[in-house]
Design a binder for these strands. Sequence first.
DNA 1: CGAGCGATTAACTAAATGGTTGAAACAAAT
DNA 2: ATTTGTTTCAACCATTTAGTTAATCGCTCG
Lengths: 215, 215
Amino acid sequence: MTPPSDLIPSFDLASETEKAIFQAALEVFSRKGKDGARMQEIADQAGINKAMLHYYFRSKDLLYTSVFAHVMSSFFSKLESVMAKPGPFLDRLEEMVGVYIDMHAAQPEVARLWVQENLNGAPVARQILQQGLQTGAGPGPHILLERVRKAVDDGELQPVEPIQLMISILGMTVMFFISQPTMTALDPAISADTAAFLNRRKQHIIQVLRHGISQ
Amino acid sequence: MTPPSDLIPSFDLASETEKAIFQAALEVFSRKGKDGARMQEIADQAGINKAMLHYYFRSKDLLYTSVFAHVMSSFFSKLESVMAKPGPFLDRLEEMVGVYIDMHAAQPEVARLWVQENLNGAPVARQILQQGLQTGAGPGPHILLERVRKAVDDGELQPVEPIQLMISILGMTVMFFISQPTMTALDPAISADTAAFLNRRKQHIIQVLRHGISQ
DNA sequence: CGAGCGATTAACTAAATGGTTGAAACAAAT
DNA sequence: ATTTGTTTCAACCATTTAGTTAATCGCTCG
């Protein structure tokens, strides 16, 4: 069933079922949180028997940790690669906003899972970070912070506290995916054509970041 | 024990225990979500016997719905009263950002509960809205949307899609309270003096909204 | 005092949940 | 065909969980 898609010898010889479990777990955990999720629901969503969950991942805790760690490191590395590029900071920022929104549009569960973890006090995130060795996750968001500091020093930006800007960018890009039910209830145009809405969203964020909204 | 604090005949003769339950439920639900929360944990946090939860609120569902509905309507009414005031839109906005952040600083659980509900697909919020009759909740966020439309028409703002601006404001003000563990891990200065950080946050948001960050 | 009544509690129940197991199905190798 | 190893599953177990109950506390009022 599972053709060895490429010959890269590294990790992840994931079988179809393993991938199905992974995706189902991501969806359920991101909606209900670690404690709210039910193993049976994950199994149903993956279309497999509950025993398989424990066959591939030993326990609920391990399943959650695996999903969270994997998903975060893949997101971070993408982020880094964008921010590491050279060029004017605001252009980098513009690309980052675009990429970030596209990533979340393709997989909104990732942001939701990250929020769930934070609402819960981020115990698993802490544990992963302390083990450290994880996937060589590297500097992660620190790159963005450093880049902002440099841009301010170089006079590219008005003086801005890096962490403040980071929270603002994160908030503007991610908030929609976190509050989608409320927002679509407020404005039906969103669900009518979500892709178009998200394109307008990118432009809006860039506009605000560059020039603000005052006339 | 519970002195009839004022003679307003309306609702809410809540006893001390009822208030304790309410607050404890808010805290636990906001961390774990409706399904993740345990009635025992709520009881422990409130310092009472678990049976009292069912004595005052009949079931877990009813407790959650009560807490969510109450908390949302009180937040909305505050919001409305700020936006309804006259004066230049950007001044209103500035006041709103300040009030909003202060409210969340005083009770971060409210935003967290709202996010939990949204992550879960907002079934309870929907149900409450359909019943409608609830607390005369009124127009709620629509006031903000209308106000933005008017400000654009009057030439006070650059052309902005109201819902986009609303998401941006919400994102910038609320995101910190949702992602506090991650943010404090990234910048220890935050936990050193959170009040000062939040004041800088207000100024930053206003700066971005008014003029953006480009030099 | 003591009858009445709301508030409170420990002990209990039925159902749901995380996790286990032993056997069966399946595939590839010998 | 037999073996060997992996994948899959139904049935099962122990614990946890929402919800109940019946008894008790503590107050107020006659």
